[in-house]
Design a protein around this nucleic acid. Structure first.
Lengths: 264, 264
DNA sequence: TAGTGGTCTAGACCACCGC
DNA sequence: CGGTGGTCTAGACCACTAG
């Protein structure tokens, strides 16, 4: 069941701590109650007005909490009826999706990486288009094999736009998570676009991943931008087909996925 | 530029028409202005207060409009700074993602389908789990090859839960879009979960898609639920690897995608 | 028909950005 | 520092669901 906090102004400050907000707290309480099994898939959740009085909050705040859960595909709602719990796997944070290392640790595996190549070279035509830099620009290009608990599962080939490229070049490349290191340096990753398809392993892929040529690989090409929409990186990541899968939730109200005819 | 409607109560009704709401109208206006090129990628959008006065609306309504655009990955926002237009492809509606036919028409191709098998049989263990029906239940199982402009690009193997299965069985199966037909019959598809990975074509896949065995296929396994969270269908769709790709947008605030270690 | 979510208003205070 | 978005309140009316 959901907690029933007695809320006074003083207590609320105590309960929330710094940096938290009330609607996030409400959302987390509901999420926790669902994860704990108190609300099974298909269960009807408390009404907005009940939660509002229970938390001493206004209806708008409770609606913000529900909206956050709906955006994550955790609940559904229809006018006139109570909100309903949807089943399905827990979703990952944005950061876990951009950083292989964060993702690996989140699922209890030990991430590792081996740098294959790092070069500063003129960007290929596709890289210029994806990074939105002029033709002929030079970009840093990094190739790494990534491991989960010792097994090679992915090759990443990433082009970094300046000035991020220079930061990467100046890094100790044995560091496991380049993303986390960049964030320490003040780079903010805010928005990513993932394009997912299937390709056959070429000879380099096969060698680096220790699979036979023509083995099916799951390819994720990803552009990541900062909060102003400036492209920071463009990556071609190839996963061993039976090592990984992507999951997408989408609801009638939230369009996050699209299916594209492939150009090649 | 965004339109500057003079808003009186009377005019607003005229402009909006039936079934529309003000915040949707505002969102559509902004989206149209972006699509038209009036706001390029990276451009800063008008402030909430400016739009509020321009539409004669409250700030909350304008925020609802922006929230809808942010959920679609069209804009980003940070406290203290104007909202910014993000680039990227237009997203598809939920309906276009669940229905192959709708998707095909939306990208200007002619959809077609050839029924390979339709059978009523006991559900496999995985099907029971995915459809959330008891072990031993019988489900309708449909296998179809789908074509884009005459070329076979996908095999769908779909299990329908009752009572949807019976509707499918009673249908003229030469109908191109089963999904649309079901919606005519009152079935509402509200929420979908897509799991995407890469597999090698088996002999049946190869024969039906006219490719060589072991060709890489992009596999999408999809569960679709109604607004109450009741599972309606569970489908294993396999696309020819070079025919199709999926695109996902995700931002720091909206978690829709997750990456999973594969079980098999 | 009573309850519930959907939409909307008109305020308020704060944290943060950029000039 | 002024402007902006983030959070929150306390109302209101309507459309829809469910019993």
């Amino acid at each position: 069941m959901l907690p029933s906090p007695r809320v006074t102004e003083r207590l609320r400050v105590t309960v929330l701590g710094m940096g938290t907000t009330l609607y996030r707290q409400v959302a987390e309480d509901i999420r926790a109650a669902i994860v704990s099994g108190a609300y099974q898939a298909g269960a009807r959740l408390p009404s907005e007005s009940e939660l509002a009085s229970r938390y001493g909050a206004s209806r708008g705040t409770i609606r913000q909490a529900f909206a956050a859960l709906a955006a994550d595909g955790v609940i559904s709602s229809r006018q006139g009826a109570r909100r309903v719990v949807l089943g399905g796997p827990r979703l990952q944070t944005f950061n876990e999706l951009v950083s292989f290392s964060r993702w690996a640790r989140a699922i209890g595996e030990e991430p590792a990486g081996r740098v294959e190549r790092l070069e500063l070279r003129p960007a290929a035509e596709e890289e210029c288009a994806q990074l939105e830099v002029p033709l002929g620009s030079r970009v840093y290009h990094l190739t790494r094999v990534r491991f989960l608990s010792g097994r090679p599962v992915m090759i990443e080939r990433t082009a970094y736009r300046e000035p991020v490229g220079a930061m990467v070049a100046g890094m100790d490349l044995d560091v496991v998570s380049i993303t986390e290191r960049l964030e320490d340096l003040g780079v903010i990753f805010a928005d990513a676009e993932h394009q997912i398809d299937a390709v056959a392993a070429n000879s380099e892929d096969a060698r680096l991943l220790a699979v036979r040529p023509r083995t099916p690989l799951l390819r994720e090409r990803r552009r990541t931008a900062d909060p102003n929409g400036v492209m920071l990186e463009w990556s071609d990541d190839r996963y061993v087909g039976d090592a990984v899968a992507f999951t997408v939730r989408n609801s009638a109200g939230a369009k996050a996925l699209s299916r594209l005819p492939s150009q090649r």
